[in-house]
Design a binder for these strands. Structure first.
Lengths: 331, 331
DNA sequence: ACCTCTCCAGGGAGCGCTCTCTTCATGATC
DNA sequence: GATCATGAAGAGAGCGCTCCCTGGAGAGGT
């Protein structure tokens, strides 16, 4: 009933534990006959190495913690970001033989849990996802000096390598597109300002407008649909004559679309809307959303690969992926 | 530089390893003085127990594998299902002090990986998410006899406890609603037929219609938006005079909405549409979707709790959550 | 006063594996 | 034929922890 051990396999094969270990770990210095003997015994007994015993001595776990910041309330639970990023990162890490341990970091309590977990040596590396600037977690974890990367640049002055997309370039393209369409009063719905992606997109919006002497009209959201709804209401109130909106992500753009519909504005005739991210839903909005493609899955995969590289002693160079405007019907 | 061990703490506190172990594990049979001594030493040294060593002897890992079936291609990557379910389950499991190990089960190779992983004793329990009927994985894992639960009833004849929502009741409500609106030709877009949720929703659709002597008009999708688009095209071709559609989930309903828009049908005037799930996006479609609320987060949490109960030797009773029609504008 | 019982601390075996070191056999070299 | 280099197999220590068992001290009973 008990699971067979290395020793049992060795006994069965009539060789030493060492030889079995060598075969199981694929070392070269084993003669074919012994290898054969061991393999058969392994198969017959259904032997599977005990990972706890192994990592007790090797000090490795082959596991990676993927730490995703979790909104306090039941907020944003079905964001595409989460599934795209977690899925893509998992694929990449699993393909490299690493286990993905998912941790949600929200409450202070969960922060402690994460810290304990990581410092207990449960994982060989850490991948941070959608950290907010104010979050103390990255700094805390950095002190544990394990290999660590971030999906998206961190706002805090902690030196953590990352993969990001070209937020500045992407947002600039979006705004330039609106300008080229002859739009005069271009507003923006920014993301949470404690995230670098939001900051960069807002900066690019401002600078691109400033170059043409236009003034910026800004409302702040938090990357959720409902915040897009509300921000758009705010904007319409601030400037009823606006004729274009650049939302810092598609979810908020979709929320904005709803507000505009309710307000009786036609899109794109009265108000042009551009989003960011090019999530699948942007193809299904009415009208389909003009947006900036910045494949989050690719970014997550790049982040994961960066970490895998780090684990092998590779370089810690940040990666920036290009962003590209996708023109559909909303602008 | 090395992490302190139990022994180091014992030396520092001037007590035995056993006492430290007792304190760290919160056992009662320790005098306050010794406890105090140990606690201080733990704090001073920053001691964190080595989980590998611990689980080597306890044979527990405090980790749970959450196994999500992964579509072969880059398909369905941003489904709300994934983020809702994984998040809710994680919250529940983490609150109980369990680690969540996320595994994507897609390719045969990943199946082997999952099987190896689970049989290596890496986890104390398994939670299956969105398994297809044809999937051999549940049967394979069941043989390992670890505590295991499924999010949604399994199609295979394997006795795995589950939490599910009332698919039959929910779908029946949806169809009855359409009937009450005076709809005469009611079609359905079914989900993948190897999943029990799809089967049940389709069955309820058929039976509810049959009771009124109407014939069913069925197209099959796979729970993705694009499959909803295509299924709706199919349906319009099969019966151009249809005046209602019940889609087996909201994503496909949203796809159907797009096809109807392209075909110049007004919703709900020409064609009424009802979805299923009540994902957040259904509030943002045009028109907002009438749908069946079956909170996937709650279901996932219930599934997780079922597993936690099992780990404590609790009963393995399936849980069925109610489903409730939410009437909005699309029907 | 002696004996038993209880309760708490310490001792130490052992969980299953890896990895260094040693031993041994084989073939090459002079 | 003796010596040495080479390479493969075996022995065994030890990774850090838990938990059973033992010892000893104090309490309670006779």
């Amino acid at each position: 009933m008990k699971r067979p051990t290395l020793e049992a396999v060795a006994a069965r094969a009539g060789v030493s534990k060492s030889s079995v270990s060598r075969v199981v770990n694929g070392q070269a210095t084993v003669t074919p006959e012994i290898r054969e003997l061991v393999m058969r015994a392994v198969k017959e007994l259904g032997y599977v190495p005990n990972p706890a015993a192994r990592s007790l001595v090797t000090q490795r776990t082959d596991a990676i913690a993927v730490i995703v910041s979790d909104p306090p309330a039941g907020l944003v639970s079905d964001d595409p970001m989460f599934s795209m990023v977690v899925r893509a990162a998992s694929r990449e890490l699993e393909a490299a033989g690493k286990q993905v341990v998912l941790m949600l970091a929200g409450s202070p309590e969960s922060h402690r849990r994460v810290e304990r977990f990581v410092s207990a040596g449960h994982v060989d590396g850490v991948m941070l996802v959608s950290m907010h600037g104010a979050d103390p977690l990255p700094a805390v974890l950095a002190r544990l000096d394990l290999p660590m990367v971030s999906h998206g640049r961190l706002g805090v002055p902690v030196d953590v390598p990352y993969a990001d997309n070209d937020n500045l370039g992407g947002a600039a393209q979006a705004v330039r597109h609106l300008l080229e369409q002859g739009r005069r009063r271009i507003a923006t719905i920014a993301g949470p300002l404690d995230m670098t992606a939001s900051q960069d997109r807002l900066t690019a919006y401002r600078e691109t407008l400033r170059d043409t002497g236009r003034r910026s009209i800004v409302a702040i959201g938090d990357f959720t649909r409902i915040s897009g709804v509300e921000a758009m209401r705010q904007l319409l109130q601030d400037d009823p004559a606006l004729d274009a909106v650049f939302a810092a992500n598609d979810l908020m753009a979709i929320g904005a679309l709803r507000t505009l519909r309710e307000a009786g504005r036609r899109v794109p005739d009265d108000v042009a809307v551009v989003g960011y991210d090019d999530i699948e839903a942007s193809l299904y909005s009415d009208p389909p959303l003009t947006t900036v493609r910045s494949p989050m899955g690719d970014q997550a995969a790049a982040t994961a690969r960066l970490l895998l590289g780090l684990l092998e002693g590779g370089p810690a160079e940040p990666v920036i992926l290009p962003a590209e405007l996708v023109v559909r019907e909303s602008a």
